[in-house]
Design a protein around this nucleic acid. Structure first.
Lengths: 202, 202
DNA sequence: TTTATTTACTTAACACCGTTAACCAAAAAT
DNA sequence: ATTTTTGGTTAACGGTGTTAAGTAAATAAA
């Protein structure tokens, strides 16, 4: 059975992406991908070294997608404080709206990331760098040095990640309203780094 | 081959716990457990409904262990602010020192948690409740209602979890010193909820 | 004391999984 | 016309969680 599309590699990626979004990461198998693509399971190995390498392509797509969203918020005539809050909320929305993408981007076991190419890691870091740049623009006394801004940027991402992770895992107390949790999470993140405040009170 | 210990269930749990700590969650298999225990793989099903149920016992152990650590810090003549910081640091240490336990407690895919007993969930929540109680003791204006304290307690745990998760996954920028990251994380968490400050500046 | 039943386990098997080795037909190059 | 490369295939290995059926020993009932 020939793939409709002449490029088998492209078909494999398209089907894998769809299966990831529809059924989730842990329901994907080489044989199931192959069956949907219309080729043998081993043909996938002609274009991807192994299952992890295939996954890495999807992970990269995820980080690119996130970066598209975040970098679009980086408008010159926006205050750095506002940028940071926008980044936070957009990041959270991305994580909640794309839980399967988010899982492989941030929750995948380190074992599967050992061979993630350095260059892809570098590109993924651009997302954290957006936070870092905005934090430096703040001219806050705690963020004077780039090193401090880098630390805080990583802490911001960690805090956001923690919220998304617990929400997606259903581990936030069910008596806590989702929206209030998110608002409080963002408020806490912003306040944590100095004098940042929510742009609109709830 | 008889298990040394007359209670097979106990032996299975002991071996599973050791394999979890030594080799990690995803290297555990029913057959490998059985081989080490000295019984057949299917014998495990006499005492645990399936692999998830076995895992749930270990998860529960993890939450009990964490609660022992945290509740020991809940001394009456300690300021609530100090309690909260101690909780944060002890929580983080637990996560970093017991990454395999932490993984199944907080990172396990929801699919594997669907049948986690409600009663065990309730016991696991005692950890968040420690934060909640301390936050209420603060008498901060933002924490007046128990509802607000509950939200903030969940946000605190989310922030802590985010840090542990990224550290254990090796996803914190390698140029950021581990200790500084943790200090900044804790400082951010404490500052986020109001006027809390680190007990000792770094 | 003999028979029946329960207890505590085992072996065999099913339907999957990622991955490798060996093979093969058609296209391209020599 | 013959060799080589391209782009796939099938078969197989050693694993996985789980279920069904069988079995030997201990216990209970007759």
């Amino acid at each position: 059975m020939e793939p409709v599309n002449g490029s088998l590699r492209r078909s494999i990626l398209d089907i894998s992406r769809k299966m990831l979004v529809d059924e989730g990461f842990n329901r994907i198998s080489m044989r199931k991908i192959a069956q949907k693509v219309g080729c043998s399971a081993t043909s996938i190995y002609l274009y991807f070294k192994n299952k992890d390498a295939l996954l890495h392509s999807l992970i990269e797509e995820g980080f690119e997608k996130l970066y598209e969203i975040l970098s679009a918020l980086n408008h010159p005539d926006k205050s750095p404080a506002r940028k940071i809050e926008d980044y936070c909320r957009a990041f959270i929305n991305f994580g909640l709206n794309n839980p399967e993408y988010y899982e492989i981007m941030f929750q995948l076991h380190p074992k599967h990331m050992e061979r993630y190419p350095v260059e892809k890691f570098r590109r993924a870091r651009r997302n954290t760098n957006l936070f870092m740049n905005a934090l430096q623009e703040l001219n806050d006394e705690r963020m004077k040095s780039p090193e401090d801004a880098r630390i805080w940027a990583n802490v911001f991402v960690a805090n956001i990640h923690g919220g998304i992770s617990l929400l997606n895992a259903g581990r936030v107390d069910s008596r806590v309203e989702r929206e209030k949790f998110i608002d409080t999470l963002v408020a806490g993140i912003l306040a944590g780094s100095g004098e940042l405040k929510l742009s609109h009170q709830t």
